[in-house]
Design a protein around this nucleic acid. Sequence first.
DNA 1: ATCTCTTGACTCAATGTATC
DNA 2: GATACATTGAGTCAAGAGAT
Length: 442
Amino acid sequence: MDLKERLKRLNSIPKITPTHPSPIEASGSEEPLARRGEGGGDLRERLNRILQPEKVYRKREILPIEKLVEGQVISTSEGETFRAEESFPSHFRYGEMTLTEILDIPAYPAHLLLRDDRLRELDFRKALFLDTETTGLSGGTGTFAFMVGLGFFQGDQFVVHQLFMRDYSEEKASLSILQEILDSYQFLVTFNGRHYDIPLLETRFILSRRSSKIREMPNFDLLYPSRKIWKGAFENCRLVTLETRLLGMEREDDVPSEWIPSLYFDYVKTGDARKIHRVFYHNRMDILTMVALAGRIHLIYHDPQAARPRKGVEHFSLGRLFWDHGNREKAITCFETALNRCDDELAWEVMKWLSMAFKRTGRNEKARSLWEEMMEWPHKRDGHPCIELAKYYEHRLKEFEKAIAFVDQALAMTPSHREREIALLLERKQRLLKKKDGNANR
DNA sequence: ATCTCTTGACTCAATGTATC
DNA sequence: GATACATTGAGTCAAGAGAT
C-alpha cells in the first residue's frame, strides 16, 4: 500500500469531534487513562491527539506580552521587537532619595573608585543604566540577552525601556535599537556589568555582525565601589541584598533570578506571557536600585555625615577609601566615628588604621595613646601596638630599654609559624641591644 | 554551574627620611 | 655624605564574589 492509498483510507474514517479535554485540562484530570480512550484504539482520536500541535489546544489561553506589559512593538529594518516603557517623575522616591536629589548631588571622583580617568566627568544625565536578563549564566555564545533594561534621565523624568525578544529571531532588531541608544550616551552604569552584561552583549553584537561601542564606553560599575564600602556590613554585596538591607526596599512580586532562564524558555515555547511578565518587574527594580545605589555611593563619598552610614564598618571602609585617595582628614574622621560604633572584633583593626593615620600625619602622641590603649586589651590580636611602641621609644624618645621590652612582648605573642615576623623582631632586638650598649659606653 | 577580575596577603626592591 | 630604618610600590598567588 503506497502513501497516497494510506492517506485516503485515513481520511475516510469519519471525523469525530474530540470529547477529551485539552492536554492542559487533561493533566489535571482525575479520570484514569484507560477510560479516556488511551487504550481504546480509536485511531482518529489518537492521531488527532498526536498530530495537533499543543499550541492549537492552548491558543485560547495564551496571553501575549503586548496585553500584559505596557509597551509597543517596534519595527526596524532588522524586523520587529517588543519594547516596554515606563516613566518615573522627578519626585519619585526610591529609598531615601528622590530622583532629582540623586541628580543634584555634586559630582564626586568616580574615576578614583573605578580607577578609570574617563569617569572624572561622570554625569548621570549622560549615563545609561543597563541591566540584562539572559538565558543562563554561562555567558558563552549560546547565552542570549533576551531582555535589555535601559534607564536614563530625560527632562525631569527617569525613563525605563526594556527591549524584549518575543522570540530568538527578534534579537537583531533588539540589538539595532540598543546600538542606537548606546550611541547617544556617554557613560554606562551597571552592576557587575563589566564582567557580565557587557561581554555578553558584545558577543551578541559580534555574532550578529554589528559594531558596537559598548566595550569602549566608560563604565561606572557599582559592584566595586559597593564592595569597597559595604563589604562586611551585610552578608554579601549582591544587588538585592544592598537594596533590602541598605536602601530598605522590599520587592512585592519578584522572581528569583535563577528561575528567569526557564521562565523565558517556557514563554518562547508557549507564547504565554503570564509568568514572564514578572521578569519585567524584576529587571525594572534592578535598574531603579542601581539608580538609588549610585546616588547612595555618590552621597556617602561626597558627604558621609549626610549619608548617615549606620554601621561602624561602613565608616571604617569609607575611611580606608579616603585614605587611599589621599584625603587624610576625612579618613581620620571616619576612623574615629567607626571606633565609636563597632564591636571589639572590628575595633582592633580600626585602632590600627587610626593610630597609623595619626602617626603619618605627625600626631605622634595621639598615636601613642592608642597603642597604649591597645596594650590594655585582654585579648590582643597581634603584636602591632608592641612593635609600634618599640619604634616610638627607639626613634622618638631614644629609650632603648623600653623599646627592647616592647619587642620582647611582641615576640611572646607572635605564633611560632610566623617565622619571618619573628626573624624581623629578632633583628630589631639585636639592633636595639647594640644601640643600648653604644649609649652605655658613651 | 561558568567566567574572570578584584582583593588581600606576602615578598622584594626602590625610594624617602632621620640621624650621626 | 654614609648609614640604618621606614615607607611605598610592584609583582605574584590563591581565594572570593557577582551576574542569570
